[in-house]
Nucleic acid binder design. Structure first.
Lengths: 195, 195
DNA sequence: GCGTACGGAGTGAGTGCTCACTCCGTCAAG
DNA sequence: CTTGACGGAGTGAGCACTCACTCCGTACGC
């Protein structure tokens, strides 16, 4: 088995454990989960930190969600596009939420970290890529919108990754509700009280 | 010094360390920060876990923010109320964000945790209390709003605790921007293109 | 084809260290 | 003098990481 495959295999085995326990996971647990000897881990990773870094990168890898976002048809109306985007994004943030939060804990330090920079790592790049994909989804309707697509993308991502549980309405999913509020606001239309 | 005061004093000293390092913080660090002997910690806390629980409870303690929310005058217009609420909430979430995230890491286990329940602890209670305070802030305008105050409170909290950085507009703070979008929507008004 | 030497992936008991927790001497208050 | 809070060296458990060894696929000499 190539070193590359080994790394991926170990990361895949480690991810659920990291999600559950954060950096408190032990290398022997990971080895057991991967069905390999503990020493093998250190043959392909310099140390536990490098393994945790790889897990973090894998968890945050926006490739999947970016592909889904890119596949949304720009011919659909804006609200439909956003509902589709919200579904993809929600799955993505659910998937990574625990891993990121968990690893931030335990003071999982950067290798050459001077300690002062807040997030100099790949996290920002990943967030920026996601943000930009959403912005592009909004861009075609720029003329019809008051805030800039950048602003809306940011606000939208915040709404979607909401940790405060939203109960489903009667005829609408929470995500549809969010999109509707984002686009049309909370106030009833003053003049035309349509549907 | 009463045991009660001791606990509070230790928790106060531990909080910044926990925020920075998560559960990886050591008891000797905490003792040094508090200016006491390590043994003293264990005379008022059964073990490190109990101390971390206390830190978590203290960090999430919504008392301060609830008081601020309650002090907002219901005579102000809704948007002004929400901007004030957003400021208080933002400070609160900033304050607690790191501690919670950090402690979730490191697999800081619940005492009797069977492992399946997602958040059976005080976190939910704290979030519910905050949610309800925001709901009451919105309640007076219920008649003018399409979604229920419950839904809006939830969406609003999601927007405010947004981790995707929002750049300030020219004449508006990010929080004012959020409130405006929440209330009036992203679309330009179709008939009246006021202001 | 067959036997043998080689290299390198894989292993897991061992090592040293860190840390939560204990225990007892000290000291101040009553 | 007695009592009990306090500190901090001590202790044992558990961890990351190492290293001497095994095992197996490959290549080469015959």
């Amino acid at each position: 088995m190539s070193p590359e495959q080994r790394r991926e295999m170990i990361v895949a085995a480690a991810l659920p454990l990291v999600a559950e326990q954060g950096a408190a996971v032990t290398t022997s647990q990971i080895a057991r989960a991967a069905g390999i000897g503990e020493g093998t881990i250190f043959r392909v990773f310099a140390d536990k930190d490098e393994l945790l870094d790889a897990c973090m990168a894998e968890a945050m890898n926006p490739g999947h969600v970016l592909r889904e976002l890119a596949s949304i048809s720009l011919d659909d109306p804006l609200d439909a596009r956003l509902v589709q985007a919200a579904e993809a994004l929600r799955a993505h943030t659910d998937r990574i939420g625990t891993v990121i939060g968990a690893l931030h804990a335990s003071g999982h330090r950067r290798p050459r970290g001077n300690g002062d920079r807040p997030a100099p790592d790949g996290r920002r790049a990943s967030m920026d890529a996601t943000l930009d994909a959403v912005r592009e989804l909004i861009e075609p309707d720029r003329a019809a919108l008051r805030p800039s697509p950048e602003t809306l993308a940011s606000v939208f991502l915040g709404m979607v990754s909401n940790r405060y549980h939203l109960v489903a309405g009667e005829s609408r999913t929470p995500l549809e509700e969010i999109v509707d509020i984002l686009l049309h606001g909370a106030f009833k239309a003053p003049e035309n009280a349509a549907t």
